[in-house]
Amino acid sequence: MDMKKMAGDKAAEYVKDGMVVGLGTGSTAYHMVNAIGERVKNGLKIQAIPTSKATEAQARELGIPLLTIDEVDHVDLDIDGVDEIDPQFNAIKGGGGALYREKVVATLAKEVIWIMDESKLVDHIGAFHLPVEIAQYGSKQAMARMEECGWKPVLRVRDGKTFVTDNGNYIADLHLGAGFDIEDVREKLGTIVGVLEHGLFLNMCKRMIVGTSSEGVRVIENPSK
């Protein structure tokens, strides 16, 4: 069975009547949204906030009632995928380019669940590039500052063109390597003009749900939550 679908289907079971639910973005979240849509079709009463235009279109097609972020002051449950996560529940997200909206929704959430296949579990994050959303205006200068920090930023390109996020911004992918100094990078990014948000999601989730090839679905609880 598809490990991503296993994780997405399991996560949908945590959604309860009356919740405001954050709907993540990406290949694993896609299965979760489908599973929630099926439950809505069968009578589940929720409202949801999508974290990207792609997820919004999917949710509308499934008949999931939607809200905008400005219509809420909290989110009951946010479910989203990750690109990497370590044993301390520190994650890198943003491979799909939706990191800004994903972080806004996750920060508002009372409870966060990260969903993934087993390949996303790592000892140290950083082998996957760290996405950083930057403003178009002054992007060259922001890239230069990141280069000065030794981070090897690469402006994301898709289909031969500079990738533009749903918010109209660019993505710089930093190639840091596994085991980089998380706090040092986070702190320095906060000083660079033009950096709007980064893909470090540190100890934010209450649990991770992992689809595996040999153990079915694993639910790993965060003891600090």
Rank of each mutant, 00 (worst) to 15 (best):
I171M: 01
N167R: 08
T28L: 11
K103R: 10
D123M: 11
L176I: 01
H198W: 00
L62F: 11
K16S: 14
L176Y: 01
N167A: 14
D76M: 11
A135K: 14
I46Q: 05
V219F: 08
L23R: 05
M143Q: 14
D173K: 03
I192D: 04
E133K: 04
T68F: 10
D73E: 15
K10M: 14
V195M: 03
V217S: 12
A12Q: 07
K16E: 15
A54C: 03
G177P: 03
N169C: 09
K120D: 13
I92N: 01
R186T: 00
L66I: 11
A91N: 01
G81I: 07
I79F: 11
K120I: 12
N203S: 13
D9H: 12
D2I: 03
V219S: 10
M6H: 00
V72Q: 10
M6R: 08
R145H: 12
G95S: 07
D70S: 12
H129F: 13
Y14T: 13
A29G: 12
I171T: 01
L189H: 00
D80M: 06
H124G: 00
I220F: 10
L108C: 01
V82I: 14
G94E: 05
F163V: 02
V210T: 02
V132R: 00
T212G: 03
V112C: 11
K161R: 10
S213E: 15
Q88L: 08
K110D: 15
G194C: 05
T212L: 02
D117Q: 09
V195Y: 00
L77K: 05
F180Q: 03
Y30P: 04
D166N: 05
I69T: 14
K93I: 13
V20Q: 03
V105A: 07
E111T: 15
